[in-house]
Simulated assay, not measured.
Amino acid sequence: MYEVTVDAGFSSGHYLRNYRGKCENPHGHNYKVRVTLIGQELDATGLLLDFKLLKQVLRPVIDRIDHQMLNDLEPFIELNPSAENLARYFYDETRSQLHEMTGGRVRVKDCTIWETDTTTATYFE
């Protein structure tokens, strides 16, 4: 098996519904996201996926939420914009694009969100 990983960053605001404490109030984070891909076969160039292509896959996902209030965007209008749900959001959005791009040869292993330098949430299937 091969793995490739790309990190990216974005800044967004959010607040947690049904939560008692400071995080029930609007606030922001400088998030970091890490997406790791996995696959058994390399392409003709000897790459699982060019890092540049993975960054291109991430760019529209990040652009949609960067410098936005997450609670005002789907799916977070109903879904709490927790780090856990953000990790799943990146997983799902990246997975659908990669399946089309690689015909299933490459899949998402996991996505990790850093809400702070010391706190993370990871989603995988």
Rank of each mutant, 00 (worst) to 15 (best):
E3R: 14
V4H: 00
V4A: 01
G9T: 13
S11Q: 14
S11P: 00
H14Y: 10
L16M: 13
N18L: 05
R20L: 14
N25E: 13
P26V: 12
H29A: 07
Y31A: 08
V33A: 05
V33L: 08
V33C: 06
I38M: 13
G39H: 11
Q40K: 15
Q40Y: 10
Q40A: 13
E41R: 15
A44D: 15
A44I: 15
G46L: 15
G46K: 14
L47C: 04
L47V: 10
L48F: 09
D50E: 13
K52I: 04
K52F: 11
L53C: 11
Q56C: 10
V57D: 03
L58Q: 06
R59K: 15
P60K: 07
P60S: 09
P60T: 12
V61C: 01
V61F: 02
R64P: 06
I65E: 05
D66H: 11
Q68T: 15
Q68K: 14
L70K: 03
N71V: 08
D72S: 13
D72A: 09
L73G: 09
L73C: 09
L73E: 12
P75Y: 07
F76P: 00
I77F: 04
L79R: 11
L79D: 06
N80M: 00
N80R: 11
N80W: 03
S82M: 07
A83G: 06
A83K: 01
A83E: 03
N85R: 06
L86A: 04
L86H: 07
A87M: 04
A87D: 05
R88E: 14
Y89W: 14
Y91P: 03
D92W: 05
E93C: 04
E93Q: 12
T94K: 03
R95S: 13
R95D: 10
S96F: 01
L98I: 09
H99Y: 12
T102N: 07
T102F: 08
G103L: 12
G103W: 14
R105T: 03
R105L: 06
C111S: 09
C111M: 05
C111I: 07
C111Y: 11
W114M: 04
E115S: 08
D117R: 06
T118Q: 11
T119S: 14
T119G: 01
T119Y: 04
T120F: 01
A121R: 07
A121V: 07
Y123P: 01
